[in-house]
C-alpha cells in the first residue's frame, strides 16, 4: 500500500476513535479532577497533532509548492 493509502486509513481510524462510545457513560476521574471522557478527547487532540506532523513529514506536497512559486504560462491565463 502506498503512503497516501496508509494516511487515508489512519485518518478513517481517527474518525472512528473520535466516537469513543466506550467512554459515553463513564464518570470516573483521571488524576482526580478530569472526567475520563474529556481526558480522552484532550489526548486525542494531541495525538491528532502528532498524526498531522507525521503526514507533513512523509507526504509534503513539494511539487505543488514548486509549481506555485513558478510563473504562470501566458497560455494558462492568469487572473480572470
Amino acid at each position: 500500500m502506498n503512503k497516501k493509502g496508509i494516511i487515508l486509513i489512519t485518518f478513517l481510524i481517527f474518525l472512528v476513535l473520535h466516537q469513543d462510545f466506550w467512554n459515553w457513560d463513564n464518570a470516573s476521574l483521571v488524576f482526580g479532577f478530569i472526567p475520563v471522557g474529556l481526558f480522552y478527547h484532550a489526548c486525542y487532540s494531541f495525538v491528532a497533532a502528532a498524526f498531522w506532523a507525521i503526514v507533513i513529514k512523509v507526504a509534503w506536497p513539494t511539487a505543488l509548492e514548486e509549481w506555485a512559486e513558478g510563473a504562470a504560462d501566458p497560455l494558462e491565463g492568469g487572473h480572470e
Binding site: 473520535h18 505543488l64 509549481w67 513558478g70
Partner: peptide
Amino acid sequence: GLIHAACFLLIGIKLWAIGKRY
C-alpha cells in the same frame, strides 16, 4: 482539531498554490 487541520492541508495549501500562481 482533526478536520480543520485536514482542510488546511488538503484544501488550504492547494488553494494557496493556485491563488499564488494565478
